[in-house]
């Protein structure tokens, strides 16, 4: 564990340069430049707000646009970093085939790159909050930890996905579908409170309700998005009961995913 972190620390300069490269390359010949990083969550927010005006989703005392934008921030970060992470090894085939680097550098930098874009979107959220005159409380200090946790979740999927993607590109093809399904299974459009009310308070699924809720929160994004909204918008601490199942799952899967990646690494150059 510590050795892994130390190795990664050793390559911090390389990761910094690669991150810089990823960002520069992406926006180099775009007139709008890095503004594109913000446009996606922003446009999704507008669409959701529009949909919400027809469907009617209970958003509590938080204005819906801010609530959904605060959900989109961790979600888009997760979605992009996972996608980018899974493609990262294949995208760097020319380096993988010629020069040895610890290959986890590639998924790792892919995820970190998205962190930078997340940071930019965070300014927009701050702007929105100022617009609606919402002041953050001290609980906002939880936010970096929640994002770090999101990063680890992305990495869990990205490491194993990137390794399989080297041999079977099916992973890269299947991912957009799976991710869009997962978005509906995460409290992005609706707040987690709605699910909680239905299952825990109203016991809508009878004796299965509690189990279903645990299953729902096994998706780490459920806890992440809800807690992010809590600490940034509602001024509340994270809801640990909603986070626990996902946290546990990640804690078990991340080391396995990393092991699998390191084990596969030896044949990357041969099959890529």
């Amino acid at each position: 564990m510590f050795k892994v972190i130390r190795d990664i620390y050793e390559y911090r300069e390389l990761m910094a340069v690669l991150t810089h490269k990823n960002i520069t390359v992406r926006y180099k010949q775009a007139y709008l430049g890095i503004a594109w990083a913000v446009l996606r969550p922003l446009s999704l927010m507008l669409i959701f707000t529009l949909v919400k005006s027809f469907v009617g989703i209970e958003s509590g005392d938080i204005p819906y646009p801010v609530l959904t934008f605060a959900a989109l921030l961790p979600w888009v970060f997760f979605q992009d970093s996972t996608t980018e992470g899974i493609g990262s090894v294949v995208n760097n085939a020319s380096v993988v085939k010629k020069i040895y680097l610890p290959r986890e550098i590639f998924p790792l930098t892919a995820v970190i790159t998205k962190l930078v874009e997340f940071g930019i979107s965070a300014f927009i959220l701050a702007g929105l909050m100022a617009w609606y005159q919402m002041a953050p409380t001290a609980h906002i200090l939880w936010a970096p930890l929640i994002i770090l946790y999101t990063l680890l979740v992305s990495l869990t999927i990205a490491l194993v996905g990137a390794a399989i993607n080297v041999t079977y590109r099916d992973v890269g093809a299947a991912l957009p579908i799976l991710l869009s399904l997962l978005m509906y299974a995460s409290p992005v459009i609706y707040p987690l409170q709605l699910v909680k009310d239905k299952l825990i308070t109203q016991q809508a699924a009878g004796e299965w309700s509690d189990l279903l809720y645990t299953l729902y929160t096994l998706n780490p994004l459920a806890g992440i998005i809800d807690s992010f909204q809590n600490v940034v918008l509602r001024g509340l601490p994270p809801d640990f009961s909603a986070m626990a199942p996902g946290l546990l799952l990640t804690a078990v899967l991340l080391p396995l995913s990393y092991k699998f990646f390191k084990w596969s690494e030896t044949y990357f150059a041969d099959v890529i």
Partner: peptide, 24 residues
């Protein structure tokens, strides 16, 4: 190997050097 077409020569020097393990 590892030169990136979109980056300038200067950026590529630093990137390629980092890939080859030369410190900044």
């Amino acid at each position: 190997a590892g030169l990136v077409p979109d980056l300038t020569g200067r950026e590529n020097v630093f990137l390629n050097a980092a890939i080859l393990g030369i410190s900044r």
